[in-house]
Design a protein around this nucleic acid. Sequence first.
DNA 1: TTACTAAACAGAATATCATTCTGTAAAAGA
DNA 2: TCTTTTACAGAATGATATTCTGTTTAGTAA
Lengths: 204, 204
Amino acid sequence: MPDDDILEKPFPGRRSALKRNILENALACFNELGVEATTIDTIKVRCGASVGAIYHHFGNKEGILSALFFCAQDNQRAKLTSALETAKTLKEAVHLIVKSYVDWVTSYPEWARFLFQARSAVAKGPHQQQLRERNIENYRELRELLFRLDSGANEIIQCQELLPSLIIGPAENFCRAWLSGRIQTSPLEYREQFAESAWRSIHR
Amino acid sequence: MPDDDILEKPFPGRRSALKRNILENALACFNELGVEATTIDTIKVRCGASVGAIYHHFGNKEGILSALFFCAQDNQRAKLTSALETAKTLKEAVHLIVKSYVDWVTSYPEWARFLFQARSAVAKGPHQQQLRERNIENYRELRELLFRLDSGANEIIQCQELLPSLIIGPAENFCRAWLSGRIQTSPLEYREQFAESAWRSIHR
DNA sequence: TTACTAAACAGAATATCATTCTGTAAAAGA
DNA sequence: TCTTTTACAGAATGATATTCTGTTTAGTAA
């Protein structure tokens, strides 16, 4: 059960068992029915909890949504950070960014699907500030890492704000299409190709 | 008012004036407050129509959403098709695809923002089949065009299902970041670069 | 013009759903 | 053991989407 580790870290132990159970079932509901179409009652029935319990733990529907969202995002980020620790060269780093992304999406397709469909809701909701700050910080860290590895060699193109889009754009677009069912072939098939292409597109 | 032409074509004339007015105001509400947070009453107040009128024209909230969505998508697609008519070579076509996309997003930022945030809702809702079919058809047409222009020259990489992601992925990712406010620089600044990069990433 | 029909509205009534509130049980800590 | 906090249960409330019934307006044919 690889999915468990996504919820286990932020909500550990027996005490949080119901919390994890609610989130797990809410995730399935959101993915199967869509965010708007899943009612609190749907979730309640599916996981056997009471309305009171749900609202006690998460405050409101948006609370469930953002809890799920940040769990997934944090896990994805943690995997990336851990992968990047081994990077010695700029090229290695770019490869690891792409591959770590593809690996995560294919390891946790349900979570990835949810990340895509919930982002805009979270971005408008009460946690928009939190989301904004995290994103800015994440992208800052990434820029610094790439800059550090480049360190004067100037292997890399100038426009820093372009880098993330060039590196992750194609893989992300393909993963979205795969998760939506429009494309059958797993992104894993093109792992190397995405990584190689990303490197070529920012290298000069 | 360039925005007008998006609604004018599908809902032309004086007869559809209220329809366009509702859609126009609904778009603003969705973008400012988010899809979930905008109520029918919000829209009603903003455009001065009655509940009855709104439901008469669109059936339900999802009806407004998908009407807006397909208007935007159709317009974007029409601009692309029209741009591609002048393409003589494969390289030209790739450039036009990217540039047409960037131009559309920067010309109609409100519509583009909406396309991003409404896609998942439409994909789950009652028009999912319609959306699916359009997408498949659109991608098929694109593949055929590229194949025709390549015609034996074999300038292009093998995996056809990879092409759209490699071509549009980076620009799309950047546009999303720009529309969300995370990036200040207009995608227009990097128009050439996105096009050139797209071509290099699929060329061999 | 007049009569007829269908579409376009208006607004009250209803139904569905998110959220709150009040109370009870369990667990933690002293 | 007593006290306090946390975890839950379910009824009550309030907001919101949707329906329904009636009225007006525009189109059409005589």
